[in-house]
């Protein structure tokens, strides 16, 4: 049978920065084809397709629908796969190969991680579960 895609409302203008991204305006309604854990969702808007940041989308059925996981305060061990320098105050600066504990895996691809006594946001894209090899 037909595949029913979930509809999401775009909550802020998004301009694309690479060819694979999909630009959309505040108020547009897109259909989500695939959700990547790193916060990029593959969407279609009219006759166009491309990746959009999950943070710019909210379910059309209402903001109550939550797919968000609960935080895990014990921490889930991960290793950083790339150097990253935070751009906002609440982000962590980490080098490649550092061990961190993931506290909260947020759908927007910015996970709450703990390094020693410091906690902040870090891109899920640059994290890999400890003990697993890169895909």
């Amino acid at each position: 049978g037909p595949i029913i895609l979930q509809s999401y409302r775009v909550i802020a203008d998004f301009e694309k920065n690479s060819k694979s991204e999909l630009a959309a305006k505040n108020g547009d309604v897109v259909e989500v084809v695939e959700k990547s854990e790193n916060g990029w969702w593959f969407c279609q808007l009219r006759n166009k397709r491309g990746w959009m940041p999950a943070a710019y989308l909210e379910p059309l059925d209402g903001p109550d629908e939550s797919e968000e996981q609960d935080p895990n305060y014990e921490g889930d061990l991960h290793i950083t796969t790339k150097d990253y320098t935070g751009e906002l105050d609440d982000e962590l600066n980490l080098k490649e190969g550092e061990n961190v504990e993931v506290i909260h895996k947020l759908l927007d691809g910015w996970w709450v991680v703990r390094k020693g006594s410091i906690t902040g946001y870090f891109p899920a894209m640059y994290l890999q579960k400890s003990g697993e090899t890169a895909p």
Binding site: I11, A12, F14, N17, S18, S20, E21, V33, E34, S36, N38, G39, W40, F42, G50, W51, P53, A54, A55, Y56, E87, L88, D108, G109, W110, Y121, P123, A124, M125, Y126
Partner: peptide, 22 residues
């Protein structure tokens, strides 16, 4: 076929959304 996602992390939530979450 699904294309590969962009190589950079997605942008943080728009400023107006971050304020709402606080």
């Amino acid at each position: 076929t699904i294309k590969r996602p962009p190589e950079n992390p997605p942008p943080r939530p728009p400023a107006e959304v971050r304020r709402k979450q606080v």
